[in-house]
Nucleic acid binder design. Structure first.
Length: 589
RNA sequence: CGGGACGUAGCGCAGCCUGGUAGCGCACUUGCUUGGGGUGCAAGGGGUCGCGAGUUCAAAUCUCGCCGUCCCGACCA
């Protein structure tokens, strides 16, 4: 049994001035953590107990599908050089030299080291599949650590790696992780979403993120009010309400109209008396491409057509152009391609590439929302003129129709039609089908059943341990403190002796604490010589889900049982306390 | 890395503009008091004013440099 009077639980009445988000303020106030430097935190007694419990759950669930390893955080340069990430990781990687001057780094993740083990040890398909995981400290020199434990430079991660003989095997390993992650986060008492994540530039690989809604989050997530549809902004799609196309005038062939000084979508729409939904928004961008033969890089125009009232999503654009960086065209580049000033740009009169590989010509990407639309209005590539009767596929030929549009809140869910919402969220887990990237770059090979040498296919899977704690606090807090699920709280229950000077109260508090402890619960006995008000405030602050107040009612053999989340209290007979508690928290840890 | 703010006792802050004895609340120590939502009284302890240089008879205060922390942005396998 733990006696508060003998513990170090430095609670604070006020939060440090530089804490902004709720979880940061409360973790410090509750005496869970103290800051050592930017993005570097010490865990004190309560904080450590809580993260240990989280790791316990992770370990228990992961042991059902994999094997726990423990890899070094200190890594030699060579393995990172082999994967190419010694360079790729840039300033995000902490680097150091040993006494001989050899380069080392602190591990940000462990694909390299795991793959190194795999390539040295795995020889046959008979040894596959393998799932190897570890719970270990990671180091990342974040450009901007922030928000307490939310973005830090040293943190604990459960990272796992799967090795399979083929894609079907990877599907199984991936699904196992998906299901295990759901069990882990359920057991931690989190409300979370599983979202389809940006699959990366190379395409094909599936990736999902486990996200928790919180105002402190750094990522935007689109989710459905009703069903379980959820995706990040780079992937999110929505159903669009049908738009009525304009009727053609005359023979319906492209018709220039004089629009003096009308440059913006709104201006033109108003001037012509149409909705922006019938207008084409033309965005002129540039990418840098490398010539496949010469290796020389040269700029290439990418023109986007969107519905007039839609916003372009840069991540979607980026994946549409193969992950290349894009930038807006400069004035001179616009004139060279369109022979027109900005404000009057359109798709007519330009010889667009027929495919992305048609490298000599500019690319025309048309948003899917314009596919099948007719009689749109766009720029005429001529100052003060626009063109009516533009129909994609008829008057001009897109290189491709792609989804380029940012979803906005309130649009319809693609699955069920209910309104979509957009929230900030924090990522607590990520599962990823890696493919052959590391097994190939680092030369891992096994023999398949035909005796042929093949690279094993990999997956990688991560959980941020501290982020589980942070997210849980973000989800469950009020002005006085926070409450954790008993599974991850430092203690199941705090027994408050409201008056330690009263012998009966003191003795009953001890008894109850002992009794609950012998029933397998983690009990904190607040035996401090403090006023009840102080103890109640502290109890409310530190995240323990249940409290037992031992007070005057001991003369009636009764104590108060308080649930932190609701602050509801009920009187319980002392003799029935263990049984009562078991009803609330059946699985003693 | 760009923009902004801050750095004075463990925590939260005032003092700086207009240079001259370093202050308040909480916390801490001792004694008494109180005992169901941060009790009251009294007496105490604790500060290289982030670091360095400069100006000055004199610098927490003015000037310059550096360091650190936070916020916004960029970045984020």
């Amino acid at each position: 049994m733990h006696r508060w009077s003998q513990l170090f639980i430095p609670t604070l009445r006020e939060a440090p001035a530089d804490a902004e988000v709720a979880s940061h303020k409360l973790l410090v106030r509750a005496g869970y953590i103290r800051q050592l430097g930017a993005g570097i935190y010490s865990f004190l007694f309560l904080g450590n107990r809580s993260t240990q419990k989280i790791m316990g759950i992770v370990r228990e669930e992961m042991d059902k599908i994999g094997q726990e390893f423990y890899l070094p955080a200190l890594n030699p340069r060579e393995v990172w050089e082999e994967s190419g990430r010694w360079t790729v990781m840039g300033d995000n990687m902490f680097r150091l030299k040993d006494r001989k001057g050899a380069d080392l780094c602190l591990g940000m993740t462990h694909e390299e080291v795991m793959t190194d083990i795999a390539r040295k040890e795995l020889r046959s398909y008979k040894q596959l599949p393998q799932i190897w995981y570890q719970i270990q400290t990671k180091f990342r020199d974040e450009p901007r650590p922030k928000a307490g434990l939310l973005r830090v430079r040293q943190f604990i991660m459960k990272d796992a790696y799967s090795f399979d003989i083929d894609a079907d095997g990877l599907d199984v390993s991936y699904q196992k992780h998906h299901d295990t992650y759901c069990r882990i986060f359920d057991r931690c008492g989190l409300k979370y979403m599983v979202i389809d994540a940006h699959s990366g530039a190379m395409g094909g690989s599936k990736s999902q993120e486990f996200m928790v809604r919180t105002p402190a989050g750094e990522d935007l997530v689109v989710s459905c009010e009703k069903c379980n549809y959820a995706a990040n902004m780079e992937k999110a799609v929505s159903k669009l309400a049908p738009v009525e196309d304009l009727k053609p005038e005359g023979d319906g062939s492209p018709l220039e109209v004089h629009t003096p000084g009308q440059k913006t979508i709104e201006d033109v729409a108003r001037f012509l008396g149409v909705s922006p939904k019938n207008k084409i928004k033309t965005l002129a961008m540039m990418i840098t491409e490398q010539d496949a033969k010469t290796g020389k890089s040269h700029p290439r125009a990418v023109v986007l057509l969107m519905r007039g009232d839609h916003q372009m999503n840069e991540a979607k654009l980026s994946s549409a152009v193969g992950g290349k960086e894009t930038r807006p065209m400069e004035e001179a580049e616009i004139r060279e391609l369109f022979h027109s000033p900005a404000g009057y740009l359109g798709p007519l009169g330009i010889d667009w590439a027929k495919s992305m590989n048609d490298a000599t010509k500019p690319i025309l990407l048309v948003d899917k929302a314009l596919e099948g639309r007719v009689n749109l209005i766009g720029g005429a590539n001529k100052e003060d003129y626009h063109v009516k009767h533009l129909t994609p596929g008829k008057n001009f030929h897109p290189t491709a129709y792609v989804d380029l549009r940012s979803v906005t809140a309130g649009e319809e869910c693609p699955n069920c039609g209910a309104p979509l919402r957009i929230d900030t969220a924090v990522e607590i887990g990520h599962i990823f089908k890696l493919g052959y990237e590391y097994s190939e770059s680092m030369g891992a090979r096994v023999l398949d059943r035909n005796g042929k040498e093949v690279a094993p296919i990999m997956g990688s899977y991560g959980i941020g341990i501290e982020r589980i704690l942070t997210a849980a606090i973000e989800q469950n807090n009020d002005a006085n403190g926070f409450w954790l699920s008993p599974s991850i709280a430092p203690f199941d229950v705090v027994v408050v002796s409201t008056n330690p000077k009263d012998e009966k109260i003191r003795a009953v508090s001890e008894d109850i604490a002992k009794q609950l402890e012998s029933s397998g619960y983690d009990v904190l006995l607040d035996d401090r010589d403090e006023r009840p008000g102080v103890k109640f405030k502290d109890a409310d602050l530190v995240g323990i889900p249940f409290r037992i107040n031992v007070g005057k009612k001991v003369t009636e053999d009764t104590v108060e049982f308080v649930q932190r989340s609701t602050l509801q209290s009920s009187d319980v007979k002392i003799s029935a306390i263990t049984e009562y508690f078991r009803g609330l928290r059946p699985t003693a840890s």
